[in-house]
């Protein structure tokens, strides 16, 4: 029972944080709130019995991605005050709001048919999950089923994921590795924009 209470409280915090992120205009505050958001998600993953995922989310979401976003903010801030504010909205976005409400209602209607949270006879629990849990110890001798599935049963998948990370690092190096260039054209553009 206690984990259900913790689950509901953390989920409510999470929803509140996400709405705060949506409404705040200061990008610096948004990035800090996003760090809190990731930490709350890591806590929720622990409550939902996924320690491996919680581990990763805590290190990646609250650590690395916050640092990367702060580094980006330092590069894209304005020249004068306010450094980190996004431009004010010129009009209320009614069309996106309608799209979001309609899509959300359709999705909520879809949840009526989902088996309730944690039910042991849901379709997702009755096929491969049972196979992995029963056989991984015999096949690989590794008690952590997540590691066994990650590295052995689905090893080819993980090879692809590692290659994606490698490719993203190469692409970032190609885009912003090395020193910043100082072309004359760029300086002229910025002056023109300041006057306007």
């Amino acid at each position: 029972m206690i984990d259900v209470v913790v689950d509901i409280i953390l989920l409510t915090f999470l929803a509140t944080t996400s709405i705060a992120i949506m409404r705040i205009n200061n990008l610096f505050a948004i990035v800090m709130l996003f760090g809190i958001f990731s930490l709350l998600s890591a806590g929720l993953f622990v409550v939902m019995d996924a320690p491996d995922v919680a581990f990763t989310e805590a290190a990646v979401g609250a650590g690395i991605s916050t640092v990367l976003m702060l580094a980006t903010l330092a590069l894209v801030k304005r020249k004068k005050e306010p450094y980190y504010d996004e431009a004010p909205q010129t009009h209320t976005a009614w069309l996106p709001l309608i799209v979001v409400i309609v899509t959300g209602s359709a999705l909520v209607y879809g949840t009526w048919d989902i088996p309730s949270f944690g039910s042991p006879d849901a379709p997702s629990q009755t096929h491969v999950a049972r196979f992995y849990l029963e056989n991984s110890m015999l096949d690989t001798g590794v008690p952590n089923t997540v590691t066994a599935v990650l590295a052995s049963y689905r090893g080819f998948d993980t090879l692809g994921e590692v290659t994606v990370i490698f490719t993203a690092a190469v692409a970032v190096l190609l885009l912003i590795g090395g020193k910043r260039p100082k072309p004359a054209l760029k300086a002229k553009d910025e002056e023109g924009q300041d006057e306007a």
Partner: peptide, 20 residues
């Protein structure tokens, strides 16, 4: 365990693509 495996890798791939 299967969703854990999928999401574990998706988080790390997610930060790499976010950085891109």
């Amino acid at each position: 365990p299967l969703p854990h495996v999928l999401i574990l890798t998706a988080i790390v791939v997610g930060v790499a693509t976010t950085a891109l």
